[in-house]
Nucleic acid binder design. Structure first.
Lengths: 112, 112
DNA sequence: ATTATATATCGCAAATATACGATAAAAGGA
DNA sequence: TCCTTTTATCGTATATTTGCGATATATAAT
């Protein structure tokens, strides 16, 4: 690869691709789903649900956090995570907007 | 990594993550946008628009094709691509459904 | 027939991601 | 205080992705 070309793209495309990328692993989809499922924010509970080692789950959580889709606080020995709804809604909105634009694009019929 | 754990996840999560993954690179977002922008299906035109070598663009196109989001036919020397709207709409629909469920999940207030 | 053009594929190098075990850190309980 | 529990981080191995140049292939043009 030599150099990372990602910065050469349009910021909008970078933003959307980063949102997509972080959801581009089944473990992270599963984590988000698990967080959505429970009132209480989960912590080590997620580890039990996923077929992955604790350290790996922790890494996935960090990535979701870094992307702003999840927030977490330490409460005692445990760590509490939940979906960062504000951020999530915002980026999801941008994503949907972009996808919507694409879907009603003007290549009416099958072109190829 | 040793073994690929992806198959241990729920098929739904795998499907969604694969959709997200293929959109997880700015070049592929840009390609989709470019395809949506023009009536005519683009081919080498995409190469001109992107800051990447022709072979790299071709690879990204193949990935989009493999994921079913794009279709392409050869017309003469040129190659014509367009968005596979049917597939795209279907997977996007599933994705939106899942995201929607997540957004109206029951962790009412900030939990952490 | 030769040449030019357009695209796909191959082979490789480098970057990133995935995964785990080991270990660190920090709080709670004995 | 010492031990246990919970989570984060480090180091490392391996897998995957990204990217390019070189090359193959196939059509079009001369």
């Amino acid at each position: 690869m030599a150099l990372n070309k990602k910065s050469l793209f349009h910021p909008d495309d970078i933003l959307l691709s980063e949102f997509a990328k972080v959801l581009g692993h089944p473990a992270r989809i599963a984590i988000i789903r698990e967080l959505a499922k429970h009132e209480e924010c989960i912590c080590g509970q997620i580890v039990e649900v996923l077929p992955l080692a604790q350290s790996t789950v922790s890494q996935h959580l960090q990535e979701l956090k870094k992307a702003g889709l999840v927030q977490g606080t330490i409460s005692g020995v445990k760590s509490c995570y939940c979906i960062h709804k504000e951020n999530f809604a915002k980026v999801l909105g941008l994503f949907n907007e972009a996808m919507h634009d694409i879907m009603l694009s003007n290549n009416k019929e099958k072109c190829c």
